[in-house]
Design a protein around this nucleic acid. Structure first.
Lengths: 159, 159
DNA sequence: TTGTTTTTTGCATATTTATACATTTATTTT
DNA sequence: AAAATAAATGTATAAATATGCAAAAAACAA
C-alpha cells in the first residue's frame, strides 16, 4: 500500500534529519519520490504519534514519540531475527506464528510498543493471539505491525 | 516576577491535566488568576521545551519534554532482540550466552546465514558453542556476527 | 466480474501557533 | 535620581497545522 510506504519513509526521515515543519518534510518526501499534501501529512504524523518539540536552541523539531512510550519496557526493535513465520486472521483476531519458543518475546515486544490499536496479546510457545481494540480493523493492525516491525510482511511473503 | 510564577503554573497544569491547545491552557491560567495572551504562552511553552504530542487516541496533548528528549534524540538505536547476553572466547572457540531457552533458535538463525567463517554451532538451552572454520580468527567471526546481527556488540557492551 | 463498503486523499478552510514590531516594565549604570 | 539597556508583553498578523467534506482509491462481497 502507498500509505505504509509513506509512513515508513516519514519515520526514517524524522529520525535522520532535523525537520521543523510539515512543509519541510513534504519536500523531503518528494525528493524520495513520495508525494502527498500537507493535510495527509498532518494525519500521518498524528497516527505515528510524532511530536513537535522545541529544542534548546529555540527551534522546533519533529520527533518520534513511539520511543518515548516504549523506552521503559523495550528499548530495542525486533526486526532482524526472522522469528515470525506466518499471520492468520480469524474472528477479528490475529494469530501470529513464530519459530518455537519465541512467541513470548515477540508478544512482549509488541506490547511494549504501546500501540492504541492493540488491546492485548496472549502468547504460547510459538503462537501469539493478538486482540485488536474495538473499532480497529485488521488492516489497521497490519499497518500498525508494519510500524512496530518494519518489513514484517515482506518477510512472511518471501517464504 | 510575574513570568516565573506563570512558567511554574504552566508546568503544573500540563502535568496534571490533558491540555490540547494553548487557548485551553490560557483559560486554566485565568482560572488560577494568571492572565496573559496566547502569544506569550507560545513563547513560554517554547522556553519550557513543552511538546505537543498526538496520543494513541488521536488527541493532542501538551507534555513536558525533559523525559522525552533523551530518548527521542538519542542517536543510538539497537535493532535486535536482546537475547544475546554475553560472548566469551576460549580455545579458539566462541561461547555465546543467551537468555534462557533462546540458544537453539539463535543458533539456528546464525547457521541460516550460511557464513563460510562458521563451521557450525551447538546449542544448549542458553548457551551456544560456535566453531569457526580453520584459519578463521575470532576477530573475523566477530565481524561476521556483526553482519548477521547488526548492533550485537553494542548491545552487549551496554550491559 | 459488478456492486457495496471502507479507507485514503486532496481541496478548501478553520483552527491553532509563532513572530515582527511597538510598547511597557523591569534592571542596570552613571 | 535619571538615563540607558535589557526583558517581557500585547497587538496584529503571518505561518503552520488540523479537519469537514467530497471525490478517488482500495478492499471486500456476491
Amino acid at each position: 500500500m502507498q500509505k505504509t510506504k509513506r509512513l515508513l519513509a516519514i519515520e526514517k526521515i524524522i529520525e535522520e534529519a532535523h525537520i521543523s515543519t510539515q512543509d519541510e518534510l513534504l519536500k523531503r518526501l518528494k525528493g524520495k519520490g513520495i508525494s502527498c499534501t500537507q493535510a495527509t501529512l498532518s494525519r500521518n504524523l498524528r497516527q505515528l504519534g510524532v511530536a513537535r518539540i522545541p529544542d534548546s536552541t529555540g527551534e522546533y523539531k519533529y520527533s518520534l514519540s513511539e520511543n518515548i512510550r516504549s523506552t521503559a519496557n523495550s528499548p530495542v526493535k525486533l526486526n532482524i531475527v526472522p522469528v515470525i513465520q506466518d499471520i492468520v486472521e480469524a474472528k477479528g483476531l490475529m494469530v501470529i506464528k513464530t519459530i518455537p519458543g519465541n512467541a513470548s518475546n515477540t508478544a512482549f515486544f509488541i506490547d511494549g510498543a504501546g500501540r492504541y490499536e492493540i488491546a492485548g496479546t496472549i502468547a504460547g510457545d510459538d503462537t501469539i493471539l493478538l486482540i485488536p481494540r474495538d473499532g480497529i480493523t485488521l488492516q489497521q493492525v497490519h499497518t500498525c505491525l508494519e510500524i512496530i516491525l518494519p518489513g514484517i510482511h515482506d518477510q512472511i511473503k518471501k517464504k
